[in-house]
């Protein structure tokens, strides 16, 4: 088990952002003194990939020059031939790759790689199996309670474990694009309308309860997961890396708050208040690791 302090990773931007906005975001991350590692790439929809492609190389160079560990994430759902090719292309990179679909897992077996939150790892034997095939870090899925995480990390202790500590949670993915549908299009003729919502599209109930968020073919939580008051727990159950999943807010400030609480410069309650101020668009939640509904907020 790794005794080091929790390391902070910046995850892939889940939304469709303008290419330049995406580039400038990661340039900022490169300059952040508190972010240790970055995983990036298009995870949600293969149709969006060309928006970031022109900027990918310079972003990676900048991050690596700043000393960040960089990993490339693969698509979460691979069905089309184009998506298989894209996955193959990413996995052929000399850099670390994070597998988010079994296709990528197949391509990466036998060499060091990461496992993303879209590959189902619910127990120790699965983590052991993946570690034997070369997994060096597993970003666990959102819905696991702390007890399961503790048992998984104990069963395969030689590798690192990551968990999304900040951001709206990916809850589902579909072949159908609800985002395009909501705006009167189909997926095949979507006109990239998801780009109109850089922080996702709100889904409310008919009684005006804030409920879910649509992000292209992905459905996300409406609440923003914030494990800011749970960092000691995360370290105790074997988490080595906390992932910040980019929202359309000041993510460098978010990273600063996490580093401050981790290093004892800020209290958990203080950090929570600061996150609420930085990202007022979403209520905070931390239910899953407490074994509660994911949208719940369980006070420390």
């Amino acid at each position: 088990m790794n005794e080091q302090a929790l390391r902070i990773t910046m995850g892939p931007v889940p939304y469709l952002w303008e290419g330049t906005k995406w580039r400038d975001f990661y340039f900022g991350v490169a300059d952040s003194p508190v972010v240790d590692a970055v995983t990036l790439g298009e995870v949600v929809c293969s149709k969006r990939e060309h928006f970031i492609r022109p900027f990918l190389d310079e972003v990676i160079e900048r991050l690596e020059a700043a000393g960040k560990e960089v990993a490339l994430a693969t698509l979460a759902l691979v069905t089309l031939e184009r998506e298989r090719q894209l996955t193959r292309q990413v996995t052929q990179s000399e850099r670390l790759v994070e597998a988010n679909d079994l296709a990528a897992l197949a391509m990466l077996a036998g060499r060091p790689h990461h496992i993303g939150p879209f590959v189902n790892v619910y127990n120790g034997p699965t983590a052991e199996l993946l570690a034997r095939q070369g997994a060096r870090r597993i970003c666990l899925g959102a819905e696991l309670p702390a007890q399961s995480i503790a048992r998984i990390t104990a069963a395969a202790p030689a590798i690192d474990y990551e968990l999304v500590a900040f951001g709206r949670l990916p809850l589902a993915i579909s072949a159908r694009c609800a985002h395009a549908r909501a705006k009167g299009h189909t997926k095949d003729n979507c006109q990239f309308v998801c780009g109109e919502d850089p922080d996702g599209l709100d889904v409310d109930t008919l009684d005006e309860q804030a409920f879910l968020t649509i992000n292209g073919v992905q459905t996300m939580s409406r609440h923003c997961q914030a494990l800011i008051g749970d960092l000691d727990t995360l370290a105790r159950i074997g988490i080595t890396h906390i992932r910040l999943s980019p929202q359309d807010c000041d993510m460098l400030a978010v990273a600063g708050v996490f580093a401050g609480v981790r290093d004892g410069r800020l209290g958990g309650a203080e950090g929570t208040d600061m996150l609420r101020a930085i990202y007022p668009a979403a209520a905070l939640s931390n239910g899953f690791i407490h074994g509660a509904p994911g949208m719940d907020w369980v006070a420390a």
């Binding site: 189902n120 819905e143 589902a172 994911g294």
Partner: peptide, 21 residues
């Protein structure tokens, strides 16, 4: 299922209980 099977935590997000678990 509208969502890709085995990759959906909508139910546990709302109720704490999911298909996978």
């Amino acid at each position: 299922c509208v969502m890709a099977e085995g990759r959906c935590s909508l139910s546990s997000y709302v109720t704490g209980q999911s298909p996978n678990m």
